[in-house]
């Protein structure tokens, strides 16, 4: 029997992988992928918890909504990365420190 706990554990694992990716990777595209992983972990949670809402399926609805949003944000993110690359000739975030004081 696959319980809610199993879903949540998988989701947590995916979220952690995503988090690790976002923090550790030296490539902006990989960071973007990490963000996607974290979003998907959240979506998984929505879907898993939606068993408590059998009338409206709010979890599923929000999952769909989030997927669309994620796709849109990836598009924007890629566009930013493309522009960053054009400007800095690199997509390694360590080399882009314009925000420092």
């Amino acid at each position: 029997m696959i319980t809610l706990t199993h879903f949540l554990v998988v989701s947590a694992c995916i979220f952690c992988i995503g988090l690790y990716t976002v923090i550790a990777k030296r490539n902006a595209i990989m960071i973007l992928i990490g963000i996607e992983l974290m979003i998907n972990a959240a979506i998984l949670n929505f879907v898993a918890f939606s068993k408590y809402d059998k009338i409206n399926y709010g979890g599923q609805v929000f999952a769909l909504f989030a997927i669309v949003l994620a796709a849109a944000s990836v598009a924007v993110g890629l566009a930013i990365i493309l522009n960053v690359y054009r400007h800095y000739k690199t997509i390694n975030p360590d080399n882009i420190t314009d925000l420092r004081d």
Binding site: L19, I23, A24, P93, I96, T97, L99, R100, D101
Partner: peptide, 17 residues
Amino acid sequence: LRFVQNGRLQNYLGFTL
């Protein structure tokens, strides 16, 4: 606390975390 503001996006995220 100046060193926190090093401009590295990932560090910021790390601090946040």
